[in-house]
Design a protein around this nucleic acid. Structure first.
Lengths: 248, 248
DNA sequence: CGCACACTTGAGTCGGCTCAACCCTCGTGG
DNA sequence: CCACGAGGGTTGAGCCGACTCAAGTGTGCG
C-alpha cells in the first residue's frame, strides 16, 4: 500500500475539500490559484474542478507517488515542497527537480508516473483523479492549452538543467542552483532575503550531479568568503552580484 | 536576414507543397506522417493542415531558426537531421538534442525559440506559420492533445538526458548515447546494424558534457575491444549486450 | 547519557580536461 | 600532378578538480 493511498484515507475527504488544515476553503479562495494552471478557468469551471478535487497531506519523507506505478491521480501543490526522484536500475538516484507551491505534478497526464515524488516537509496537495481530470481537460481546450504552456515551461527548465549539468564546476552548479531557486520563489511571491532549503545536502548533490561532500565544501567556501550565510534550514544570500557572476 | 527566410524564398512555394525535391506530394502521402503529430488528424483536417504548410530545405550547417528570435513558424522534419543548440552568454554551447525525421520543432508553440536549430545534413522540413498553426490547434483539441503527449515524451527524454549528464563516466555516456540514438532510429523504422552519426564529434561532446578528445578516445576504445566498429559517417554496433551493460 | 542523523572537514586517488602535436581526407590552385 | 591549407579526427603527456574513504562535529531525541 502506498503512502499516497494511506494519506487519502487519513484525510476525511468528502464532496468539497476537507478542513483538516489552514488551507482548503475551496478553489475560488485558493492561495495558489493564480500561480497554477487553475488560473485558466472561469468560476463555473472552477466549481466543476473543485468537485473533482480532494485535499491530501503528507509528512516529511512520505511518498506521494512512485515511479512506474499507474498514475491514478495528478496533483497541485498548495503547501510545502516535494522532490522528484528517478531511480536507476543499479541503485543510483537522480533528482530531476523540486516541486514547490503552485507546481503541478503529472503535467503530461501520463499513464504511469515517470518519477517518484517524496515530501520534503509537511505538504498539502490538491488531488485530482486522473481520468476525471482528463475528461475535464478534453472538454476545456483552454485548460489543456494552459497545461501545454506549463509543459513548455518545464521543458525549458529541464534544458537549463541539462546545460548546468553538462558544464562542470561545482561552484557554478551550486551558485546557479541557489539563483534558480530564488527565482522560482520570487515567481510565487516569496522574495525573502533568506532562501529556504527544504531539501538536504544529499538531495542537492543528486540534483546537481555532485557528491554530498562537494556540495558541503562548496557551500562552506561561499559562506567563508561572505557570498552567502549558512543558516538553519537555508542560506542568506549576501552578495548577489558575485553569486550571479559565479552562476552565469 | 535569417537563412530560414532565405530558404523559404528559394523554395517557390505556392498553395500546395512545392515540388523541389523527392518528397512533397501532399500530407496524405507523407512518409513521416505516421511517426509525427499529423497522425492525429482526419483526412479533412489533413487537407487544412496541408494548406498551411510550405516545404523548405536547408544545406548542411545552415540555420533553420535562432535562439531568442521571434518564432514565426514551427516545423516538422521530413528528411535529414538538425542539432538544437543553446548558447551561453560566456560563449560555451550545449546541444540539447538532435532532431530526426518525424520530429517536431516548436512543440511548445513558444513566442520565441528557446534553441537554435542547425541542419546537420541536407534537411527538408514542413513549415507552418505559427499563428495559423496555433489557430488550427485551438480548433482541434485532439491535435493539441497529440502535441501535449509529444511534449510529455520530450520531457521524459530531457529527464533521461539530465540523468545521463549527472552520472559521470565517459564510457557510460557514449554507450548510452549510441543506444538512445539506435532506439530513436528504430522508432521511425530504421533498424540497420550500422548507426549513422550525422553529427560531428564536437556535437556529441557538447551534447554529453564531455570534450571532443574524450569522445574520440572513448569511441576508439570501444572500437578496439570490438564493441563497435567505426565506419565513415557512423558506427556499426557489434556487441550490443556489452554496450547495454556499459550504458545502463 | 547515548544514539541517530545530517553535515563538515581532511588526505589521497583518479578520470577527464588542457595543451599540443599529429594524421587523414578533401578541395583548390599553381 | 603535386603542393598546400583547412577541417575533422586521433593520440599523447601532464595537471587539476571532484570523487573516495575516513574521521570528526553538532544537534535533536529517547
Amino acid at each position: 500500500m502506498s503512502s499516497e493511498t494511506w494519506s487519502s484515507a487519513t484525510c476525511a475527504s468528502d464532496e468539497q475539500s476537507c478542513r483538516h488544515g489552514r488551507s482548503a476553503v475551496g478553489c475560488a479562495a485558493c492561495t495558489v490559484r493564480f500561480v497554477s494552471v487553475c488560473d485558466a478557468l472561469t468560476s463555473d469551471e472552477l466549481a466543476e474542478l473543485e468537485s473533482l478535487s480532494r485535499h491530501v497531506s503528507h509528512g516529511p519523507r512520505e511518498t506521494v507517488f512512485t515511479q512506474d506505478e499507474a498514475a491514478s491521480a495528478v496533483y497541485n501543490i498548495t503547501e510545502g515542497a516535494v522532490r522528484l526522484v528517478r531511480l536507476l536500475p543499479d541503485g543510483r538516484r537522480h533528482i530531476t527537480g523540486f516541486a514547490l507551491v503552485g507546481d503541478f505534478l503529472g503535467l503530461a497526464l501520463p499513464e504511469r508516473h515517470t518519477t517518484t515524488a517524496e515530501a520534503l516537509s509537511h505538504v498539502t496537495l490538491c488531488r485530482f483523479e486522473r481520468r476525471a481530470f482528463q475528461d475535464l481537460v478534453a472538454r476545456k481546450p483552454h485548460l489543456l492549452q494552459r497545461l501545454h504552456e506549463r509543459a513548455g515551461y518545464e521543458l525549458g527548465l529541464a534544458q537549463d538543467q541539462m546545460l548546468l549539468l553538462g558544464r562542470r564546476g561545482a561552484e557554478e552548479k551550486v551558485a546557479s542552483f541557489l539563483l534558480t531557486l530564488r527565482g522560482r520563489y520570487a515567481r510565487i511571491g516569496l522574495t525573502s532575503v533568506t532562501l529556504e532549503l527544504p531539501m538536504g545536502r544529499q538531495d542537492i548533490a543528486d540534483h546537481l550531479g555532485l557528491t554530498i561532500e562537494t556540495v558541503s565544501r562548496t557551500l562552506t567556501r561561499l559562506d567563508r568568503d561572505r557570498t552567502i550565510l549558512i543558516v538553519p534550514g537555508g542560506v542568506r544570500l549576501l552578495d548577489l552580484p558575485r553569486l550571479e557572476r559565479l552562476g552565469g
